[in-house]
């Protein structure tokens, strides 16, 4: 059945340029109602969306549930998608962000960081391992204390690896504004970390 098709996702090794062409072709067909094309888009983006949502929610159950919702919402909305020079990923992450916001409108942010910690590779050096664990835990907690916009720019840039052009499309802001937001977000994050690591607030995060 379809399940077998689903189990064997179609993977291609393609260059970035070919990939862009292929994505716009898939988006074009999907927006005309091709479920097959949308299925391929799912294969291409599900890992990125999941990773992003995971860092927003901090637990597998929510990340899975919301990732599924993102793609269902995207399928329902894709007929209205127009390229207009904007990357598809930016649109998709916008959908993802809205799904997460909707989710937290009805629920308290309850994060369990134990899973992130378990995803950190153990390379046999106990000290380094403990260090990485501690760093990741502190960082994740700190990211969640940022404002939503600051979180968004940090996650898209450093967790997903988008460039500023894509982030600007995803957040509907000019690139200059993204650079400023990124700078402020990093300062705020740094301040929270200082606070958490040393229990005192050094170096007030004031943009110079």
């Amino acid at each position: 059945m379809l399940e077998a098709l689903a189990l064997k996702g179609v993977q291609f090794a393609v260059s970035a340029e070919e990939k862009t062409d292929r994505v716009s072709d898939l988006v074009d067909r999907a927006s005309k109602g091709s479920g097959e094309a949308f299925g391929q888009l799912y294969q291409l983006y599900v890992d990125r969306i999941y990773n992003y949502i995971y860092y927003k929610t901090g637990n597998t159950v929510d990340a899975e549930d919301l990732t599924e919702q993102v793609f269902i919402k995207a399928w329902e909305a894709i007929r209205r998608f127009r390229f207009e020079g904007k990357p598809f990923a930016a649109w998709l992450f916008k959908v993802a962000r809205n799904v997460v916001i909707d989710h937290y409108r009805t629920r308290k942010n309850n994060t369990d960081l134990s899973e992130v910690i378990s995803a950190i590779a153990h390379d046999g050096d106990p000290e380094a391992f403990a260090q990485r664990r501690a760093t990741a835990q502190v960082l994740m907690t700190a990211i969640r204390r940022l404002t939503d916009e600051q979180q968004q720019v940090i996650l898209l840039k450093f967790i997903d690896g988008m460039d500023n052009t894509e982030i600007s499309a995803a957040m509907g802001k000019k690139e200059g504004a993204i650079r400023a937001l990124q700078y402020r977000a990093l300062l705020a994050l740094q301040r929270i970390l200082m606070d958490e690591r040393y229990g005192l607030e050094r170096m007030p995060a004031r943009a110079t």
């Binding site: 599900v46 890992d47 999941y50 990773n51 995971y54 860092y55 990340a63 899975e64 990732t67 992130v116 995803a119 950190i120 590779a121 990485r132 760093t135 990741a136 960082l139 994740m140 940090i154 450093f158 967790i159």
Partner: peptide
């Protein structure tokens, strides 16, 4: 440090 955070795969 941010870039070294582990990627979460479904």
């Amino acid at each position: 440090e941010l870039r070294a955070l582990p990627e979460q795969r479904p």
